[in-house]
Design a protein around this nucleic acid. Structure first.
Lengths: 347, 347
DNA sequence: CCTATATACTGAAACGTTACAGATTGTCAC
DNA sequence: GTGACAATCTGTAACGTTTCAGTATATAGG
């Protein structure tokens, strides 16, 4: 009776469970469970036997069962702003994260939030509902309530970009200070003296990194700044284009630009040309880019590469590291810009 | 005694459960469960009372509990090729999907697969492990094993792009036939007679849609085709650029291009210019784009817009519709190109 | 007054997993 | 031969939910 019933139970459900394995091996469910996770109190042979059978029939632990029992979700959440995120950032960072979690049990869920919402909302949701074991956030601010909140709750996370609150947490950042200084030095090297910076939005930490690098290098090389802070890389293409054109029609206009984003650079160049000036002759532009396309746009553009896929991979590694018990302080990384491309004079 | 214990249980765990609600309302767990889902056999007042309390204390059903009991995951999976997917496609489609599932209990998980893998692998994984209630796939083929597989298993899905297997399933597609015909007509309208097509990869369904539109319109307007099928939009920028330059140096060279992707268009233009020819004078290019950037690249470019965010939203709606019991046949949509932008003659 | 029926509610069981607290052996010291 | 102990293994309960099979009460029909 008993056996018949058990058999039927196992046959009926398509997917093997611990019970199936227990039946097949003649062991108890508990033993099977522990054998699969290499618990020491299970005999070596039993362990091998269970693992063999499990592999043979393609056993995979039921995520809901594990999650209900242990609270472990095996989920990493990537939190994204649906309006302001850089396009290539989204795909590259996702692929970077994917690459790292590919041979782990982790799934990647994307948690979006929009302009209208408090950026803390999605984080609160994730933490309150226990929807993820780890979180990755971008658009990091010097005093970031999201980081503070997660630190308080003890949920592992990593930020793309640094904070400046005296709190330690994993991050990955691109060295925007180095980017800006190299950009300025390069422009000075080809004779540019009046430089404008299209900066990141003020509220984000890398705004000041970029700005500091820019102004430090400016005084180092003895060049001057033409203020261009009515727009940031967050503004629309049209806005940036218009403002650039306005700026370039002024008496004292820049002869060099440093741009923190590739799409914005397209707008800057358009604005320059709207004003009847020529890139490479009247003005030079150094831009960050994440895909290798800007040099097709105008060969005179000077580019510095930022690798978002790498960022995604690093962020994922950090979060997994923290979940795995590593100390947050050891999970910080900074990636250096790969140098300004050599200037090619116009034909 | 009993009460003390119950109270303690509820106090201890931070998050309210049905048990918490049951205790607070003085009802049974079953009643609470049913009251929350508006079951008819619960008294109207009780129902309101339970729902009020639930809202007040911020009750949210435990996903693992629901999933374990019912098998419902409340997850939609977006399956992406980590090498070949168009960059803007990834971010836009994610945002489109997000937009639709925002006020549902659904989460979006991204399931990646790489070049080396069988595209069926991630699908098998999802289905076998029951990881999602619905799936969205892209890079759809005329005879698509993934669609067939999911249809057999009865798991709701939607494809970006159509299949051609005589099987009915939800899809969203851009009308690439219309795109190609309009592109050709426009080029013919401005006097171009020898046209080349940079097509999608042959294995994907929209290759033939595009090609058919191209050739049909070609004979309609009496223009001729210059074969350009050694490359597709899947090839690298460098490859496309090189092939284009080769083509443009030949005696019989195209005076018009139709390009199925924006990034590829950059390469085509670069190739044209490598050959010493000028866009708008020697040759015109019509291109699809998904973000509004190509006109900044070269103002002579003729562009047609494909809205991936809309595609994401439509795909999500389709999958949710299918899950909700709608008939697959009713969940198909085709989006028309928004017209070729007016040609602006060079200054 | 009793029975049938509808209404409103409830406890127990189950989904698959892990943790806790044993239970069953065999080995060894004395 | 007995007790102690280690080595292996096992049953039960619990995580939060829904479903099944009820139970209790009120209402109506006869």
């Amino acid at each position: 009776m008993d056996r018949d019933q058990t058999e039927k139970d196992d046959e009926a459900s398509g997917r093997p469970t611990l019970k199936t394995l227990a039946f097949m091996t003649g062991l108890g469910v508990t033993t099977v469970s522990r054998a699969l996770k290499d618990a020491p109190e299970i005999g070596a042979e039993t362990r091998r036997r269970v693992q063999l059978v499990a592999k043979q029939i393609g056993y995979r632990p039921n995520r809901a069962g594990v999650r209900l029992r242990t609270g472990k979700t095996n989920v990493i959440s990537l939190v994204l702003n649906t309006e302001r995120e850089i396009m290539s950032f989204v795909s590259d960072i996702i692929y970077g994260v994917s690459e790292v979690i590919a041979d782990t049990p982790y799934h990647l869920i994307v948690t979006p939030y929009s302009r209208s919402q408090d950026p803390l909302d999605p984080i609160r949701y994730l933490v309150e509902t226990g929807s993820a074991d780890g979180v990755i956030i971008s658009r990091t601010q010097p005093n970031d309530p999201r980081a503070r909140y997660m630190l308080e709750r003890g949920i592992p996370f990593a930020t793309h970009g640094r904070t400046d609150m005296g709190l330690i947490h994993p991050y990955h950042d691109f060295d925007n200070y180095a980017f800006a200084t190299e950009a300025v030095r390069h422009l000075a090297g080809i004779g540019r003296r009046r430089l404008a910076l299209l900066a990141p939005p003020v509220e984000l930490t890398y705004h000041s990194h970029t700005l500091n690098g820019f102004t430090d290098a400016l005084s180092e090389v003895g060049a001057s700044e033409i203020p261009f802070n009515t727009v940031s890389v967050d503004h629309s293409i049209e806005q940036i284009r218009m403002r650039t054109a306005q700026l370039m029609r002024r008496d004292v206009r820049p002869d060099g630009f440093v741009s923190s984003a590739a799409a914005a650079t397209l707008a800057i160049v358009a604005g320059i040309e709207d004003a009847g000036l020529k890139l490479g002759r009247d003005v030079d532009v150094v831009s960050k880019q994440s895909s290798d396309l800007l040099h097709l746009f105008r060969r005179e553009l000077l580019v510095v590469n930022e690798n978002f896929r790498l960022a995604g991979a690093e962020l994922a590694r950090s979060v997994l590291g923290w979940i795995g018990g590593a100390t947050p302080g050891s999970l910080r990384s900074l990636s250096k810009p790969t140098g300004v491309l050599a200037y090619r004079p116009p034909d």
